[in-house]
Simulated assay, not measured.
Amino acid sequence: MKTKITFKSIIFSISAAIILFFILFFVILSLLNKKPVAAFYGIPENTQKGITAVLQKTHTRRNKKSLPYEIVILNDTLDLKSAIKNSKKPDILFIYNGRNAEYAASLAAAKKSGFDAQVLNGMTTSVKTTAYSANGKITGVPLLIDNYEIDVNLNAFKNSGVPAVNFWNDIERLAEKTKSASVVPVLFSAGNDEMLINVFGALVES
């Protein structure tokens, strides 16, 4: 049985091929030009601006006209799962540590993404413990940490005979030497016992 090829069928086939070509062309073009999405959840506006400024300087897009990252602010009045569901899926997410961060790290692990463990080299143990890992990959790393600060009463310090405050035993000596002359010879910026432990760990490792 022979199929009769008509002029109309040839035109239709050529038209369909051209349309398919343009569809594929624009799909490929959009994929090549797709920006990675950087999202913020529960991060203060001034911190967002600081991180965004650094992100947008990381590389230059091929067209040299648009910024490399698309920035998304997730609705932090919702739980993270709902916030992500109602928004573009982020490629990188900035968030405070906690349950939401655990959920974000599990999403990254499910996509089999992450950094090599060596990304944590040089960090103190107290910082390393805030990282999330799965399948040998680091799926969440600390970018910003709370300020660990030890304030020393300079007047008490000058009269204490302690030459320097570099180690924990120096702090103990200073406190012992000045306990009768000063009400507060040493002050820690620790809001709770967990932060105090982190201050201690950072000091010991330094």
Rank of each mutant, 00 (worst) to 15 (best):
K2G: 08
T3K: 12
K4E: 09
F7Y: 08
I10C: 13
I10D: 09
F12Q: 15
S13V: 11
A16L: 14
I18K: 02
L20C: 11
L20A: 15
F22V: 09
I23S: 09
F26M: 06
I28L: 10
L29V: 01
L29Y: 06
S30I: 04
L31I: 00
L32S: 05
K34P: 01
P36W: 07
P36V: 10
A38S: 12
F40R: 09
F40Q: 04
N46S: 14
N46G: 02
K49G: 12
T52V: 08
L55E: 06
R61K: 08
R62P: 00
N63W: 09
E70N: 10
I73G: 05
I73M: 11
L74M: 12
D76L: 03
D76Q: 07
L78Q: 15
L80I: 15
K81R: 12
K81E: 13
I84G: 05
S87C: 09
K88D: 10
K89W: 04
P90D: 05
L93E: 03
A101N: 05
E102K: 15
A104Y: 03
A105N: 08
S106M: 12
A108Q: 04
A108D: 03
A109F: 03
A110I: 02
K112T: 08
F115T: 04
F115M: 04
D116V: 11
Q118D: 14
L120S: 07
N121F: 00
G122N: 02
T124H: 09
T125S: 15
T129M: 12
T130N: 07
Y132N: 07
S133W: 02
A134W: 00
N135G: 14
K137C: 00
I138Y: 00
P142S: 02
L143N: 06
L144P: 01
D146R: 15
D151Y: 13
L154I: 15
A156L: 07
A156Q: 01
F157R: 04
K158F: 11
S160W: 06
S160D: 06
V162Y: 03
V162P: 00
N166K: 11
F167A: 13
W168F: 06
N169P: 00
D170T: 04
K177S: 05
K179E: 06
S180F: 10
P185F: 00
P185V: 04
V186I: 14
S189C: 01
N192V: 03
M195E: 11
M195K: 10
L196H: 07
I197W: 06
I197Q: 12
F200W: 01
G201S: 10
A202K: 09
L203Q: 04
S206L: 08
S206Y: 06
